[in-house]
């Protein structure tokens, strides 16, 4: 079902913020064209892991990263221009952030910043991405309106459209449904399923059932450690390698 090539290979990744260790020796592969869910309670290190992958961790002065992350075989920490990397990895934050500019400009922002100037090319990107994010029909008549004035659910889909605007190879969604109503959540989940044809998707969620619905494989994080990663059939069964996975999935703690 999923491609066998590894898109991202994480080896012995540790992360400290000052004296607090956030990640302990993580070893994890993300396969091309799969949907990988990362589950775990708050402060398990899920978001920190995403921030290491696209090097947003650079903006946290106290953070110290060790170990290796390879993206398409390239060592992430050695890249001279992390912005280049971030253009290949789309990222959606938990809380929707519409930039204070028009809906059109929100989606066209990243392509413009990367040097695309042609108006027709931008028009096409904006329409495609809004459509992919299942937002186009709702906003097609008011692309000039402020992105910040949309409803929360619409802003979250706008954020997804923005993340898709550079045709990323990997899309990371960090608890995207936290500030979104159930109907929008279902819409976005449907979108994610169609996207896996074109890209690799990592979904961080604290909703176990969402991981079960969406993902091919699921990884459980607890207290900065990777407890278990496996196909969904294993994770959501009685055959988990680690007792805690079974207990967490059953809702016995977390």
């Amino acid at each position: 079902m999923s491609g066998q090539r590894n898109k991202i290979e994480i080896r012995d990744l540790s992360l400290r913020y000052g004296n607090d260790q956030a990640l302990y020796n993580i070893n994890l592969d993300v396969r091309e064209h799969e949907i990988l869910a990362i589950i775990g309670p708050a402060n398990a290190g899920k978001t920190s892991l995403l921030n290491c992958i696209n090097r947003m961790i650079d903006f946290v002065p106290s953070a110290r990263v060790s170990g290796s992350i390879r993206f398409d075989g390239l060592e992430v920490s050695k890249l001279r221009d992390p912005a280049q990397l971030r253009r290949r990895i789309g990222m959606v934050f938990p809380l929707p952030v519409g930039l204070p500019m028009s809906i059109y400009d929100n989606v066209a922002f990243a392509p413009r910043m990367s040097g695309i100037r042609s108006g027709s090319a931008l028009d096409e990107i904006v329409e495609t991405c809004l459509q992919q994010a299942a937002l186009f029909d709702e906003v097609k008549d008011r692309l000039g309106d402020l992105g910040t004035k949309l409803s929360g659910g619409q802003q979250q889909r706008l954020t997804i459209a923005r993340a898709l605007s550079l045709r990323p190879e990997v899309l990371c969604l960090d608890e995207f449904s936290i500030a979104v109503d159930p109907v929008t959540t279902m819409k976005i989940e449907a979108v994610i399923k169609t996207l896996r044809e074109q890209m690799t998707v990592i979904v961080v969620t604290n909703l176990v059932l969402q991981a079960k619905r969406l993902a091919d494989r699921t990884a459980l994080f607890l207290g900065g450690k990777l407890i278990e990663v496996d196909d969904n059939e294993i994770i959501f069964s009685r055959r988990t390698a680690d007792m805690r996975t079974f207990q967490y999935v059953q809702g016995l703690f977390g």
């Binding site: 696209n54 947003m56 903006f59 912005a83 280049q84 990397l85 971030r86 253009r87 990222m91 934050f93 809380l95 952030v97 930039l99 204070p100 500019m101 922002f109 990243a110 910043m113 990367s114 954020t159 923005r162 993340a163 605007s165 550079l166």
Partner: peptide
């Protein structure tokens, strides 16, 4: 959050300042 949203899209610090922080 606006700055982070820009950085994550591959915009440099200066691009973020020039196109989002200063205009606002």
């Amino acid at each position: 959050a606006f700055r982070e949203a820009c950085w994550v899209l591959g915009a440099s610090r200066w691009q973020t300042i020039r196109h989002v922080v200063l205009p606002n």
